[in-house]
């Protein structure tokens, strides 16, 4: 990583007081300049480095980090500081319950309204999102999909802007294929925290899904907006899976395994 602090920053106050493995930072904490290759100039979210040609030229800031007017980088969210050397990216992994739409994310939405050109979708954001009726595979002006209020759809955020309603689609715009997006028929949907949803989507971390899969088959769709949909052969299994997922948030791997085992034995 960052070899040396070439600029000799005076304010190299290291804010990281956390354990070596987990670096928890709070709002207002500075990104330690000697580690981040503290930059000199900046634009929107990529800050250019003009100190050393050998050093990575840019630093990319992800969610939770903001450059300030005085060239320091501060965190605006509490969470775990993450970094990859590829592209010198820094971001804060935080957990919350309220979803804020970001482009490219897969979400589960509920149809709450219908106009001529759009479906109004509840994806958990402050304002309802819009889903154009033509944003489906094989949809034309003559052949449009028909959904009712209350239907569940798995879709992707096509456009997200803080000043406007988010726009969704259920189709890959380049290929015209559905890519697995579309209506979720049957099953059961419930809400979890955004952090848990993110972990369920990461195959390395989804311990609970792996454990449940050993006992019975089920379908699942996880939205980045914290909505989880499951479908299994029987209602009893569906309830068990939903409870197991909700329980797993603050458990370690071993605790998770024994929790699933106990629940399956009781059924």
């Amino acid at each position: 990583m960052a070899p040396k602090n070439k600029k000799g920053q005076a304010d190299a106050a290291d804010e990281s007081t956390s354990a070596p493995t987990l670096r928890v930072i709070l709002p207002g904490d500075q990104l330690p300049p000697h580690e981040a290759n503290l930059p000199t100039g900046q634009d929107e979210d990529a800050v250019s480095m003009m100190i050393d040609q050998r050093a990575p030229p840019t630093i990319k800031l992800g969610p939770g980090l903001t450059p300030m007017d005085d060239d320091t980088i501060i965190s605006v969210k509490a969470g775990v500081l993450n970094h990859t050397d590829i592209g010198n990216r820094w971001w804060v992994e935080s957990n919350q319950r309220r979803y804020v739409a970001a482009p490219g994310e897969s979400v589960i939405g509920i149809v709450t309204g219908k106009t001529g050109e759009h479906y109004k979708m509840d994806i958990g954001t402050a304002q309802p999102a819009l889903l154009p009726v033509l944003a489906f595979e094989n949809a034309t002006k003559k052949n449009r999909p028909n959904f009712n209020i209350g239907d569940l759809l798995y879709c992707r955020v096509a456009m997200a802007n803080k000043d406007m309603e988010a726009e969704l689609d259920c189709v890959n715009p380049t290929t015209g294929k559905s890519d697995g997006f579309g209506e979720l028929k049957g099953g059961f949907a419930f809400k979890v925290s955004l952090g848990l949803a993110r972990r369920l989507l990461d195959p390395r971390q989804a311990v609970v899904l792996r454990e449940l899969g050993k006992h019975f088959p089920f379908e699942t769709a996880v939205g980045m907006n914290g909505k989880v949909w499951i479908n299994s052969a029987s209602t009893a299994h569906t309830i068990l899976i939903a409870n197991a997922i909700k329980n797993s948030e603050f458990l370690s791997t071993a605790q998770c395994q024994s929790m699933v085992k106990k629940m399956v034995e009781r059924i």
Binding site: V24, L26, N95, E249, F250
Partner: peptide
């Protein structure tokens, strides 16, 4: 700070082991 840190440690323990 300690309170927030404890909460995140609990959340991330699955990744640790």
């Amino acid at each position: 700070r300690t309170a927030v840190q404890k909460k995140f440690e609990k959340e991330h323990q699955q990744l640790q082991d």
